[in-house]
Design a protein around this nucleic acid. Structure first.
Lengths: 227, 227
DNA sequence: AGTAAATTTTAGTATAGGTAAAATATATTA
DNA sequence: TAATATATTTTACCTATACTAAAATTTACT
């Protein structure tokens, strides 16, 4: 293989090897213990931690498993920036006037994972059942709502919250005759990246609903400020 | 190398190769385009997608970058389960009676990333400045609070929200003379895994505060139900 | 200071990460 | 429908690196 074999992340504070070492030390393990338990040699662990060699995915998985940490924790990209959203300055997106209104809270910074909106579900509105990557957290701010997860009914009221893996089939129904307000936070799925390329039709929220369309034929009613 | 080179995930619906192919097709790219742009051969992309060979971390990163997706999206573990927290059934943790009260909302399921609590910050309470992996989202439910990020002042009021990368130094100060209630959601860091091993002193929340201690010498005032 | 344990270094090798090119499958076009 | 272009898979191969064992060095402990 003709590739340069330096470790994937060039930031000296955040290399794969450094993260592995940090984690190992947190757990007060020796390289010997890690090596034996992951079926690798002590010398190799040393080289990996010092960035002299890069483990195969199989070896990395074995190491990570013994360190009780998901592989992804050692590979995720460093992130920066923050954003603040004032309650009087939320962007409001309307999808079909009788159904949903969104107020986008979180903005994006490079590599961000969290995505959050305030959703106003109109009385009686039902969203289609979907599933996708990531996980979601609902916090009911006002009103009540029924959420189906894999067909199981969950009736939530103000102050209740629900946290689940988005790969489970889920949908929402405002079974009341008033608007329900939900704070919705989810981990970003691959469809929702801001740097969308090629023929992805637009930006989706974490529930798979199209928010922006690229060709503007489906542009939504968007405005900022007071709803 | 004597290791078995099958791909790391045995679930046929979720192999690395299948995820890569799915993503490529979503973006309507050919293997040729992926190969050329990541500096690899078409045949190799094919073999990777079909699980016949496993890419090195360097190659995987190159592919993932071209697919506009973080490496971790292709490696994360499948997740299951969900949990629901009623507003009258939240677990309440008190950390030093004059400072903070937590109501834990999200529960854990294998591989979960999100972690959420409702925090009641007592008047005048200041938390220490910390930084750690992950990202955080604050939504102010009641009252007001000052949050410092890298020394920059952010004054938030009810309905405001803040989203930032936790690796930035951050702290909070309830500058008012009333209790402030904050919904706090963050991505789990490696310290907070429920399967903590060895001499980790206990479970930390995403702000690095110790919630449970293993030797119980620092056990917190924990009860469920009405606060 | 002596010793045990942990880590790094060194010198090596086997295998798998990755290739080029041919073969096959699929999509497109006239 | 046939011809052609494009996409993907297959095949045979190579070499660099993933990983080793063992020695040397460093660190921690008593």
């Amino acid at each position: 293989m003709k590739k340069n074999s330096t470790v994937i992340q060039e930031d000296p504070e955040n290399t794969l090897g450094e993260r592995l070492r940090l984690r190992r030390k947190e757990l007060k393990l020796s390289m010997k213990e890690v090596a034996i338990s992951s079926g690798l040699s002590i010398g190799f662990i040393s080289q990996v931690e010092r960035g002299l060699t890069s483990p195969s995915l199989t070896s990395l998985t074995a190491i990570a498993n013994f360190l009780r940490s998901d592989v992804t924790n050692f590979l995720s990209q460093p992130k920066s920036k923050s954003s603040i959203t004032r309650h009087q300055e939320r962007d409001v997106y309307t999808i079909n006037k009788n159904g949903l209104q969104y107020e986008r809270l979180s903005d994006s910074f490079p590599g961000h994972t969290l995505n959050s909106v305030i959703i106003h579900e109109m009385p009686g509105h039902r969203s289609e059942s979907i599933s996708h990557e990531g996980e979601e957290f609902f916090f009911i701010l006002e009103g009540a709502i029924t959420i189906y997860i894999d067909g199981v009914v969950n009736i939530l009221e103000a102050g209740d919250s629900l946290h689940f893996d988005s790969s489970r089939s889920h949908s929402a129904w405002n079974h009341t005759n008033k608007v329900t307000t939900v704070l919705h936070v989810c981990t970003m799925n691959v469809f929702g990246d801001q740097d969308t390329v090629k023929d992805i039709p637009g930006i989706f929220d974490c529930r798979g609903n199209l928010i922006f369309s690229k060709d503007h034929s489906m542009d939504l009613n968007i405005h900022s400020g007071n709803k």
